[in-house]
Measured scan of single mutants.
Amino acid sequence: QVALSRTQVCGILREELFQGDAFHQSDTHIFIIMGASGDLAKKKIYPTIWWLFRDGLLPENTFIVGYARSRLTVADIRKQSEPFFKATPEEKLKLEDFFARNSYVAGQYDDAASYQRLNSHMNALHLGSQANRLFYLALPPTVYEAVTKNIHESCMSQIGWNRIIVEKPFGRDLQSSDRLSNHISSLFREDQIYRIDHYLGKEMVQNLMVLRFANRIFGPIWNRDNIACVILTFKEPFGTEGRGGYFDEFGIIRDVMQNHLLQMLCLVAMEKPASTNSDDVRDEKVKVLKCISEVQANNVVLGQYVGNPDGEGEATKGYLDDPTVPRGSTTATFAAVVLYVENERWDGVPFILRCGKALNERKAEVRLQFHDVAGDIFHQQCKRNELVIRVQPNEAVYTKMMTKKPGMFFNPEESELDLTYGNRYKNVKLPDAYERLILDVFCGSQMHFVRSDELREAWRIFTPLLHQIELEKPKPIPYIYGSRGPTEADELMKRVGFQYEGTYKWVNPHKL
């Protein structure tokens, strides 16, 4: 086992960053958080920038500027975001240094004079007029057009580079997404736009490419001749908990499936790229999406959770019991969808996408189930092999396979070949997804960000279904809070070829 401390991990990262040409360590950078008073800024962006600063992973002359409508001070920003920093008493001095680099400007999102004030403020910072500028839009999409237009007109660096990070949702359907994309691309070049999907920053999602293309053993079996089906799962054990009003506007397909799960599907299904260059990788992902037809209604199961009468606390409440959810809402909190990649490698292999709230566990994984062994000599005792990439929690890679049961006879039983990170790298604290992705933006690497043509294809696949749901308002199937979801989803999976045995229990190697 390799035991690495946080300091050692960050030392390795620093070495990698400083050796590259793309990370300008000594240049002045300004990180501007648009929507600095909001939840995302408070819980994710400010803490992430602090962790990067604490670990010495930001360029040395980096300033952080918050911008929002609320009249706040840096002290206010500190008060609301610091509880999420997880700072230790030993880091007190470092924390003071961090907040000394912070400033805040209040202004409207659609007022040109406010942006001119913001620009004057940035120019007044040390070497601010020639600094590289990175704008993070932690804002609702309704203000994107006004904000990007004003940034472009008043706040661009004339000497350094300018980059803009856009948070999902990128529209509600193909038409609104196209409108937003066309607007942003009329102001910024594609190499300046970073559409963030934080799932692409997760260690195991990034590991998929290495697993596939750096190991000879997987190449020959990664196709329709050997793989019976692919299941991509995202499960949350909690409901909307008072935030249903926002969720109800989008629903589970827009929230998770059309982005996170579809991105994971691309990494499983794509061909080997010409290189690890950002556009070479994204070219292959677009090719996969172009091979997927629009979702067919007979390959869809929609569910909505109801309270568990035997549960406790939140578990007793259904989705419609959330006071922020519109009365009688038919918005799905669970969806199972089957897609097919219609190309030579994957023809006929079902890709089953499942996601839901208020389920029995927290889990995100990719599961490849292989065909049955031909010419069975073990009297149907063999179960199908599976390769599982567990994204969260407890990152893991393992192969479910058959071995001989101890004893006199040739009785096979299920076991696993474990390729888990935790076994080799004991207690290594890896940077989280937002840390990686923000560092990628500083480096100018777009590999783990969504390109406009990729986004367009993703919406093309799901828009007809979303429009049909909005028009017909089908009643989702009720499922109990804390269950596996509607049984109809299991029946759909069985119908397209997935075999669920229920006889195997994964042993978490992190707890051995």
Rank of each mutant, 00 (worst) to 15 (best):
K285M: 04
I469Y: 12
L419R: 05
R384P: 09
V391F: 01
R384T: 05
E271R: 06
E312I: 13
K383W: 10
W506V: 03
T330V: 14
L289K: 01
V373A: 09
A269C: 11
K426G: 15
L492R: 01
Y305W: 06
G375P: 10
V428A: 14
E344L: 07
P476V: 09
C291K: 13
L339M: 12
H379W: 09
R451Q: 03
R327A: 14
S275V: 05
K404F: 00
P431L: 06
R451I: 03
Q446P: 04
N360Q: 06
H467L: 10
K400C: 01
V428N: 12
P412K: 10
T503G: 11
Q258G: 06
K429L: 12
G313R: 10
L265N: 00
Y340N: 14
K475R: 15
Q380M: 10
S275I: 05
V388H: 01
E413D: 15
A458P: 05
E312M: 13
E470P: 05
D490T: 10
E294M: 10
A269F: 04
I480S: 12
Q380F: 08
E284K: 09
E457K: 06
V450L: 07
V496H: 13
E294K: 12
D432K: 09
E386I: 00
C355V: 09
Q258P: 05
T276A: 14
P323E: 15
R354C: 03
E395T: 07
F449C: 01
M264K: 04
E414D: 09
E457P: 01
L320Q: 09
S452Y: 05
F351H: 02
L466S: 06
V337M: 09
P406K: 08
N277S: 15
F498G: 07
L417M: 15
L430M: 15
E416G: 09
N308L: 08
P350H: 04
G303M: 03
V388K: 03
Y319F: 05
L439M: 11
D322A: 03
E454L: 06
L492C: 07
R460D: 05
L430I: 07
N343T: 13
G407C: 08
Y479F: 05
L465I: 14
A274H: 12
H371D: 08
T316N: 13
W459P: 00
D280A: 14
D490G: 08
R424D: 06
V268S: 07
I389G: 02
A374P: 13
R282F: 01
S415W: 03
N277T: 12
L455N: 10
E314K: 09
Q263V: 01
M257T: 12
N298R: 14
R484V: 02
K272N: 06
E472T: 13
R460W: 05
C382D: 10
F351A: 02
C382N: 13
Q258H: 02
P474G: 11
N343R: 05
A364G: 11
G328Y: 12
V338M: 11
V281S: 06
R367M: 00
K473E: 11
M408D: 05
Y421Q: 01
K290I: 01
R484S: 03
M493R: 07
T331N: 11
A315T: 15
T403Q: 08
V325N: 05
V256K: 03
T276G: 12
T316Y: 11
H467S: 11
S275G: 07
T503R: 10
R390C: 08
Y421D: 06
S415V: 11
K287H: 09
K290D: 09
T403W: 07
H260Y: 01
K505F: 13
R345F: 09
N299Y: 09
M402T: 12
E488V: 08
K473V: 10
L353K: 01
V397E: 00
S275Y: 03
V338C: 11
D376Y: 06
Y425N: 07
A332E: 14
E435V: 08
H448P: 08
K383L: 13
N277M: 13
A315Y: 13
Q446Y: 05
K383V: 15
D372I: 02
K494F: 12
T503Y: 10
N423P: 14
T330K: 13
R362N: 06
G422C: 12
Q369L: 01
A396W: 02
Y319D: 00
V391W: 03
A489K: 04
M270K: 03
V288A: 10
Y481S: 08
E342K: 15
N308H: 13
A315M: 14
N427E: 13
V397Q: 00
R495S: 12
V441Y: 00
F410L: 13
L353Q: 03
L302Y: 10
H260N: 04
R282H: 08
L261W: 04
T324Y: 08
Q380P: 14
E271I: 02
Y504C: 05
T420D: 15
E470R: 08
C291W: 07
T276E: 08
R451G: 04
C382H: 13
A458G: 11
E395K: 07
L455I: 00
Y319I: 00
I438S: 00
V366E: 01
G348K: 11
L471T: 14
P431W: 05
N423A: 13
R424N: 05
P406W: 05
S415A: 12
N423L: 13
R367S: 03
E271W: 00
T324D: 07
L302F: 10
E344A: 10
T331K: 04
L368A: 07
I389D: 04
I292A: 09
K429T: 15
K473T: 13
H467G: 13
D322S: 05
A396D: 04
L465S: 08
A458F: 03
M257E: 05
E472I: 09
R390Q: 12
Y434K: 04
V341A: 05
T399S: 12
D255C: 03
E454K: 00
M493V: 15
D418C: 06
I389Y: 06
V256R: 04
L320S: 09
V256F: 07
S293L: 07
L437W: 00
Y500D: 03
L455A: 05
G318I: 03
R384N: 07
G375Y: 11
D440P: 01
L471H: 15
T463F: 04
P309T: 11
T463L: 02
G502A: 10
M447F: 00
N385R: 02
E386A: 06
K363D: 05
K383C: 14
V300E: 05
E312P: 09
E416P: 02
T333D: 02
T316I: 13
G482H: 07
A336E: 15
C355K: 03
E312V: 12
Y481T: 08
V496S: 14
K285F: 01
R362T: 10
H371L: 09
T276D: 12
D440Y: 04
